[in-house]
Design a protein around this nucleic acid. Sequence first.
DNA 1: AAGAACTCCTGTTGGC
DNA 2: TGCCAACAGGAGTTCT
Length: 294
Amino acid sequence: MPELPEVETVRRGLEPAMVGARLERVVVRRPDLRFPFPPGFAERLTGRTVEALGRRAKYLVADLSGGDVLVMHLGMTGRFTVSGGPGGTVSPGAFHHQAGGDAVHDHVVFGLSNGHAITYNDARRFGFMTLVPRATLAEHPLFKGLGIEPLGNALDGALLAGLFAGKAAPLKAALLDQRLIAGLGNIYVCEALHRAGLSPKRAAGTLATKAGGPTAAARRLATVIREVLEEAVAAGGSSLRDYAHTDGSLGYFQHTFRVYDREGEPCPTPGCKGVVRRLVQSGRSTFFCGVCQR
DNA sequence: AAGAACTCCTGTTGGC
DNA sequence: TGCCAACAGGAGTTCT
């Protein structure tokens, strides 16, 4: 799925179209995405006003009048497109299902009181939406176990060392674990590890000292995680196969990848004579330089 | 209990 | 050109 920078970019695209508007019409074209929609999903949304649109980890969280929260996850291929609006024209396909092409994956459409239509398209249907009472959101199974926000103030070397102390799992797996840090995915983990000069295979626990404090590596990693995410947000995320902004434009951070999807290319670290290699860790690709990442 | 493997689904890509 | 295998940014569930 889109990782944190992509979800944040989508949030920023949806916010001006959604917040303050009432959901006048909700079209749901199939009973499920990754999970079934909750009972009465469209009916429970209709008539509600979107009071705020936030993000937690890779989830979009829309606060609705009446006390419920609409939780949305983009999975791997989920995409929101905004059309219409004051003085604009709603794309013809929004409320009339198109028979062919990409539009067969237009699964949900929100018609808003300000004239905007927001279409959710998701070919692989790894995304999902659900409704949760706001008061119980923190206790919801999807949210209860989530780790810290990597762009929040809490993330530093000491916190990282605390999270990783005693862990035998490789750094790659530990960074992907949403229960520790929430929002990183395959791309930004690969990029952060390269920037920090740390091997994805190294045991996570080696970033803590015997006393549980941060090593220099832990401090470095905390710094570059923040750095790579901030740069990616500023670039509007990374567009590979499936990701686009809510207006259809693309992010451009993929042009700054140092290792991701660059197998066989020379390592970009100044002075390093290594070559970017690919290895599979827990079933997914890791890109790294075996020379400068130790 | 931690860590790894498997699973959901469809579209694209690269090799022959 | 066609065919087929490998692969894709996630994460809940199930295994060892």
